Deep mutational scan, measured.
Amino acid sequence: NKFNKEMRNAYWEILHLPNLNEEQKNAFIQSLYDDPSQSANLLAEAKKLNDAQA
Rank of each mutant, 00 (worst) to 15 (best):
P18R: 14
F28S: 08
H16Q: 04
N4M: 03
D35R: 12
L17P: 00
F3V: 15
A27V: 12
E13V: 13
A52I: 06
K25I: 05
K5E: 15
N50E: 05
M7Q: 15
A27G: 06
Y11D: 01
A52R: 11
L15D: 02
L32N: 01
R8G: 06
K48V: 13
E45A: 09
I14M: 07
K47M: 04
N19P: 00
M7K: 00
A52S: 11
K25L: 12
N50G: 06
P36Y: 03
Q30M: 14
K2Q: 14
L20G: 00
I14F: 04
N21P: 10
L43W: 02
E13G: 14
L43G: 03
S37M: 14
Y11S: 02
E22Q: 15
F28V: 07
E45T: 11
N9H: 15
R8D: 02
L32W: 02
E23N: 14
E6S: 03
K25N: 04
L49Q: 13
A52N: 15
N50R: 05
N19H: 14
E23V: 05
A44I: 11
N50A: 15
Q38T: 11
A44W: 05
L32V: 08
R8E: 15
K48F: 06
S37G: 08
K47A: 05
A27P: 05
M7H: 02
A46M: 01
N9F: 14
L15G: 02
I14R: 00
D51R: 07
A10R: 03
I29D: 00
M7V: 10
E23W: 10
H16R: 07
L15Q: 05
N41M: 10
E45Y: 08
A10I: 03
L42G: 03
R8T: 08
N21R: 12
I29N: 02
D51S: 13
E23H: 12
P36H: 03
A52E: 09
K25W: 03
Q38I: 11
L49T: 13
M7S: 02
Q30V: 04
N1D: 14
E22A: 11
A52P: 05
E22D: 07
I29M: 05
M7I: 06
I14P: 00
A10N: 02
Y11H: 04
L20W: 00
K47F: 02
N26M: 13
Q53A: 06
K47Q: 06
A10F: 02
